[in-house]
């Protein structure tokens, strides 16, 4: 095969796998930002927090990192619910979400990062899964399990989340709270309770994404920064509250970034990706897969 074509194909395939990771990171945000209208800038910081916890636990116990991240989800759910209670008490109730709420999450992000630097140090941490060095080959195309397994977990989690939102009563209530919270009150459902539950779910998704992240690449306390733009880009391009759109956008984003990295060098990939977001914001703010408002 032509080496350029092989490079392109490999770039696309590993971009799709990378897109799985981005989808996991963005799915949580799609719930909080897209459905609940809570602009959680700190989402990637929670992800990095989970990554570093997984790395520490992995070093201590030697269990599989993805399993560890799954075990962390209840704790992160509780953390998310607690943060929503604070957010609701101080901002949403007063109608101050816009500026103060943004600054609140910005401050939370900063506190998480600095606390991580102070406790685990500024250096990179990693967790090696038992399959980390295995690569499947399909002809000229490499399928490293280090990327494939986290992507599979991500898609399984997103699938479960989508089923939950579509099939269960509570899940439908979450989708409803995005549309009309007063109508929810008429059905005797407490919108605050539903939003608390949903925000907890979004942070629990961040924990899973963090586990996937630390399997894919080494993580340091500041790794979240580059993800802020990525996850918001994916969620906005995906049309805010649609999980399907979010997955498609994440895959597209992963491919664009990875192909750029393989042809022009990795230091250029963020600029291309964020350039895409700026263009989307300027010309199609309802997202590539969203309907016009």
């Amino acid at each position: 095969m032509d080496p350029d074509l092989a490079l392109l194909l490999n770039g696309i395939v590993s971009g799709l796998l990378l897109g799985g990771l981005y989808a996991a990171a963005a799915a949580g945000l799609s719930v909080s930002f897209g459905m609940l209208d809570v602009v959680n800038i700190a989402h990637p910081a929670f992800m990095v927090l989970a990554s570093l916890l997984v790395a520490l636990l992995w070093a201590a116990t030697g269990l599989d990192p993805l399993l560890l991240s799954l075990l962390l989800t209840p704790a992160f759910w509780a953390l998310g619910a607690a943060i929503y209670v604070v957010y609701h008490h101080f901002f949403e109730r007063r109608g101050d979400e816009a500026i103060q709420g943004l600054a609140f999450f910005f401050g939370i992000m900063f506190i998480i990062e600095v606390a991580l630097v102070m406790t685990v140090g500024p250096d990179q941490h990693f967790a090696d899964a038992s399959y980390a060095n295995i690569t499947w080959r399909l002809g000229e195309i490499d399928l490293p399990l280090r990327m494939l397994v986290p992507a599979a977990l991500a898609f399984a989690a997103i699938g479960a989340l989508a089923l939950f939102l579509r099939r269960t009563f509570t899940g439908r209530a979450i989708a409803a709270v995005a549309q009309d919270r007063d109508a929810l009150r008429l059905l005797a459902i407490d919108p605050v309770r539903i939003k608390r539950l949903a925000f907890g779910i979004s942070i629990a998704m961040a924990a899973l994404a963090g586990g996937a992240l630390v399997v894919v690449q080494p993580v340091d306390a500041w790794s979240g920064h580059i993800f802020i733009g990525r996850v918001f880009a994916v969620v906005i391009m995906g049309g805010l509250s649609s999980l399907g759109g979010c997955v498609l956008a994440a895959l597209a984003f992963g491919v664009v970034e990875n192909v750029t990295a393989s042809f022009y060098g990795p230091s250029w990939s963020p600029a291309v990706a964020f350039g895409c977001l700026l263009l989307v914001l300027a010309f199609r703010p309802q997202g590539l897969f969203g309907r016009a408002a």
Binding site: V39, I41, A98, I99, L102, H225, I226, I228, G229, F232, A233, I236, P270, A271, F274, G275, L277, L278, L281, A282, P285
Partner: peptide
């Protein structure tokens, strides 16, 4: 020019992206 026609949160996110770019 790019973002001020949108809701405030988008402007905030766009400025964050500008920083990375």
């Amino acid at each position: 020019i790019l973002t001020l026609r949108l809701r405030g949160a988008y402007f905030a996110i766009a400025t964050l992206c500008l920083s990375v770019v």
